[in-house]
Design a protein around this nucleic acid. Structure first.
Lengths: 350, 350
DNA sequence: CTGAAAGCGCTAACAC
DNA sequence: GTGTTAGCGCTTTCAG
């Protein structure tokens, strides 16, 4: 009796059901359910049967079948995450945070991976119809995937948008105060004595766009003339950073500091600068945005605007599945980022 | 009729069921099922009814309920992915590839995120019991989570291990030929004229360990004496690379080339070298492992051993859910990596 | 060609 | 205390 294995790898065939447990324990199907779900406090069950049933369940290696439960109306405890590009380090970090926070609440994350499908129309058909999530979170900007958004809007499914720039459009959203972040960064550079500051941004989507306008407005308000060349649009990769540096330092009159729209870009910039003998921060200060893990461990450590990723993600989950059932709470939650000063910024020399 | 919206955002309450469609179309429940599932080729259905039903379904915005289907034995089309650390760029890339390949086959990926839970015993309880996946893939080395592995082994669930070092242990596995990769890298360095080669590796898990032994064996076989200091163990981050460079160049007698166990490390090394005025590749050649996206775009481009990620992931999916039902196909599939030569390696000078 | 009915595994009234 | 029953939404015989 005690030597029987709960389950051999071979009976992968038919999973053990409650009925099996019931048969072995010599009770009914529903009694098993009651016991295994700990309803007993309310509806008393004899200790004896309980033990018998528990033993049987253990012996057979019973595992509840979540689908059947879900069919009865129980939540699936699955959170859909549709992310633009999980290859982007920032979003990978965000997914990790999402996964962690979700798990703390008993949820798991299923990846939507909408990323650039041509048959964009199918995105939802797959993500939604086939995957029973309790809610879905949009990570990043999806304005260029209107079909997805429409489907989501029409679906009987709680959806919340995170980092979708600030522009809400039918979904509750969680975003970051890009203006505050940019201002903190620029104020820091100004304090150090910089006046010749360039901006480098990736694709003009959501947050990136906001950061750029914040930059331009800030400088404009202070009557700082920013040469057109000092606002660079490149790919949001390290290579993009390299390209930006190339452009910025091609002619004379280079900036003494660069505000990059993301840390990935910033790292590319630092890398490119170092490799052409431009000392950081002595000859060039660089500040990034996001505070991805690499930002701290890279050398020199990157001064950056930290995104409160965990808090934002937590809030999003709360909105999506939380008890805060304030119906149409569509007002955006905006979080304030924090400037982290490391080694990549310093006073301009010369 | 034509102006009725399929569904207002407000009836998030009760999803439209087949019964609803049936009622509207004036047919039975099961007829709807037949039509909407295109069984009609075999079991003919009058064109008229079909159209009527389709119209009704469209009008009501009917969406099949996947759980009910799954309950009937249909696969859930969900693939569990348990990954050590999704923050690791390499694994993030792998997840992306997995997601893409999975989607090509109609599957979605649910993130297990086993990463370092103290209550490791619960891992499976959550990952498995609550999430009806058709199969699960283990990405990385999990030898330090025996409970997880045991649960998985006992579960009625196809599991395949990818990048778990080579050591199979009860699961079919897909891995990479680390020996071949290391040999290619070392041969390349030797061709360039290097003899003073160091190895830098992260935590001694799975693949990393294999790469280190491959390195040691290769040198040993050629009677190359490797000072103990030339095999560095550091954190698998850019900071780790920095630490390794610090150690390697602390005393005289530094190597002229470094083989890093991962690209992240290699990047840290290049970064650290550049920042202390050690030219790459003139004064120091660096080769990485993995070929993460950053490797190509970084400056200088990283010479590295490319991991055939997509192919490996595809194979894993094939094994897990494919038709290749060769029962106990537990022989490991091993893929051969390919050396990609970029700018971070060159002949030693001086 | 189409309807009735059973049943997937589970929970929750509602009996006894 | 415990068994019976119904039903979640869907597919699938089996009868017409």
């Amino acid at each position: 009796m005690t030597t029987s294995r709960p389950k051999s790898p071979l009976d992968r065939k038919r999973p053990v059901t409650m009925k099996d447990v019931a048969r072995v324990a010599g009770v009914s199907h529903s009694t098993v359910s009651r016991i295994l779900n700990d309803a007993p406090v309310l509806i008393p069950v004899s200790v004896e049967t309980r033990d018998r049933v528990r033993a049987a369940a253990a012996e057979l290696g019973y595992r509840p079948h979540p689908l059947a439960r879900a069919l009865r109306g129980a939540p699936t405890m699955l959170l859909g995450a549709i992310v633009r590009d999980i290859t982007d380090v920032f979003f990978a970090t965000a997914i990790e945070a999402l996964s962690t926070e979700a798990r703390n609440r008993g949820y798991s994350v299923v990846l939507g991976h909408a990323a650039r499908r041509v048959d964009e129309a199918l995105a939802l058909t797959h993500v939604l119809e086939a995957r029973h999530c309790d809610a879905v979170m949009l990570l990043g900007d999806f304005t260029d995937e209107p079909v997805l958004l429409k489907d989501l809007r029409d679906a009987p499914l709680a959806t919340v948008a995170i980092w979708h720039g600030s522009q809400l459009e039918g979904f509750p959203s969680v975003s970051v105060d890009n203006v505050a972040g940019v201002e903190a960064a620029l104020a820091h550079l100004a304090d150090l004595g910089h006046t010749r500051i360039a901006f480098v941004g990736g694709e003009s989507l959501g947050d990136i766009r906001e950061r750029q306008s914040a930059f331009e407005r800030y400088q404009h308000e202070r009557d700082v003339r920013v040469p057109r060349r000092w606002v660079q649009h490149v790919e949001n990769t390290a290579a993009g950073g390299e390209a930006a540096v190339a452009a910025l330092f091609a002619e004379g009159d280079p900036p003494t500091a660069i505000l990059a729209a993301t840390d990935v870009l910033a790292m590319g910039i630092v890398f490119a600068a170092l490799s052409r003998g431009i000392a950081v921060p002595e000859a060039l200060s660089v500040v990034g945005f996001d505070d991805i893990p690499l930002a701290a461990t890279t050398f020199p450590g990157l001064t950056t605007v930290r995104m409160p990723v965990a808090a934002m993600v937590t809030e999003a989950i709360e909105i999506a599945v939380g008890d805060a059932l304030d119906a149409d709470e569509e007002r955006p939650r905006v979080f304030t980022p924090e400037l982290i000063v490391r080694r990549s910024t310093g006073p301009p020399t010369g």
